[in-house]
Design a protein around this nucleic acid. Structure first.
Lengths: 263, 263
DNA sequence: CCATCTTTGTGCACGCGTTCACAAAGACAT
DNA sequence: ATGTCTTTGTGAACGCGTGCACAAAGATGG
């Protein structure tokens, strides 16, 4: 999950909650899969299961878009795909630029999930002159000197930053100055942007640290449970077979932790 | 969901809110930067600005950890770095495996932000036999057949899935069966896991779609405003003029994590 | 046309997270 | 010591998101 939205003042033109917007792509993906299997209609229960959410939540989310379901039947898959796509703005073409063509930038350039959703990689930009002209994912890399002209000529509004942390703010400033108003930031830095520019952040290191926290907590609880039961430490042989599955959408529960104190 | 623990009164003191946990890595990064500049103490106001959050929120977050500040002075940087690191479990070694060494997997393997936070890439695993033995980021790729033995022998509890969507659930099942209890999923699929396993999802396509939604909304508002004012459509001439910046982060040398790549 | 069954759409209550505002705590000067 | 000044820590209010539970709506069958 990414944090770091710049919140805007009021604007109640469309009263769709942020949390709902964040789930729409999830629904869209599940619906697209159903569509490819030529499933005509789907109930909120089924779709919710496929998307890993609560069915009541899903119905409420859809209610913000309008009443697109039929009671006693469910939702028309094709129609819903269209409505959500339109709501998300995916029916139009979104040219994006990726700045910083290292490992991650190249991975993003090759990522297939973009084109299928209306996103088009308009250009790949890197500060290293020796990268210029080299094709990545079939697109020749261009030097950062041309950043401004590329953005203006292609009418780019969305930029992806995949540079090292040190270069991120400067790249961000140039993107914004050239007309970009939405930024997806992979660099581990807090970007400061003018009002009206949206920033979403994806930070691999942070995600892992959050996992580590829960992992430590689990280890602590387990140790406490073992101590209480007098059971020796287990090998890695666990029994996951019979365990019931839950949809992994929500994060773990919280409880108390003995908090292992290292020296 | 994942509410497998209705019992346990749980000492309230250790119940750190999920939202707070998600911000601790952010504070830690800002504090590390201060530490490297040998700044001895920092006020909640300053640190909050550096991390891009509200100062009251920051103080409340820290209050869940304990009272580590000094009124009238602020927080001791070094001490706070230690406390947060300990709380997040970063004082211990976390071996992780990365499954799926495509573009993204390789980017992750090369990502410097891991090692500096106590994470160690124990192995790279791929299903393609021709990849076996080939070094990526200095680590030889191993075939998926050895997944179980690798995990058991290294005591791996955290797994990263960077495979195509189609393979993700099977990989997930095998990871869990072998003892992994925390998963960072980059594949665009909803993973189902047994109770007690944490999953965090990073979805590039979803982030972009959320940006597109806001972008469309901004475009709509702007168009409406123009129509109302009778102003013609603008070229790419933007108005980044003297807008003040949100999240004032005047940090210059954020010499934190040696990011992703030489860009 | 009526009865029954299914599934949507939503009013409502609850809990979590955020923010404000201020008293308490300590540093520092006199 | 005493007063002033700075900054923390937190009580309380508020708003948002979630999930329950149910009435309304429509399909379906007789």
């Amino acid at each position: 999950m990414a944090t770091g939205r710049t919140h805007r003042p009021a604007t109640r033109s469309r009263g769709i909650p942020e949390a709902t917007v964040a789930r729409l792509p999830l629904y869209l993906r599940a619906l697209t899969a159903l569509s490819e299997r030529s499933v005509p209609t789907v109930s909120s229960e089924e779709l919710a299961a496929a998307a890993g959410v609560n069915s009541a939540k899903l119905r409420k989310d859809f209610s913000y878009l309008g009443s697109y379901g039929t009671r006693g039947v469910g939702y028309d898959v094709e129609y819903l795909v269209y409505q959500i796509s339109r709501e998300l703005g995916l029916t139009q073409d979104w040219p994006v630029v990726i700045v910083g063509i290292g490992n991650l930038g190249a991975a993003l350039a090759n990522y297939g999930g973009f084109a299928s959703r209306g996103f088009r990689v308009a250009a790949l930009i890197d500060a290293d002159p020796s990268m210029a002209g080299k094709p990545v994912a079939g697109i020749p890399v261009q030097h950062s000197d041309e950043l401004e002209s590329i953005i203006r000529e292609n009418g780019v509004h969305i930029g992806v930053i995949a540079t090292p942390a040190g270069a991120a703010q400067e790249v961000c400033d140039r993107l914004v100055a050239a007309g970009v108003t939405s930024i997806l930031n992979f660099a581990p830095t807090v970007l400061s942007v003018p009002d009206g520019v949206d920033v979403r952040k994806v930070d691999l290191s942070i995600e892992l640290q959050i996992l580590a926290f829960h992992e430590q907590r689990k280890a602590g609880e387990e140790a406490a449970a073992r101590t209480a039961a007098g059971v020796p430490a287990p090998a890695a042989t666990n029994a996951t077979d019979g365990a019931e599955r839950t949809s992994a959408t929500d994060q773990g529960p919280d409880g108390d932790v003995p908090a292992v104190m290292p020296a």
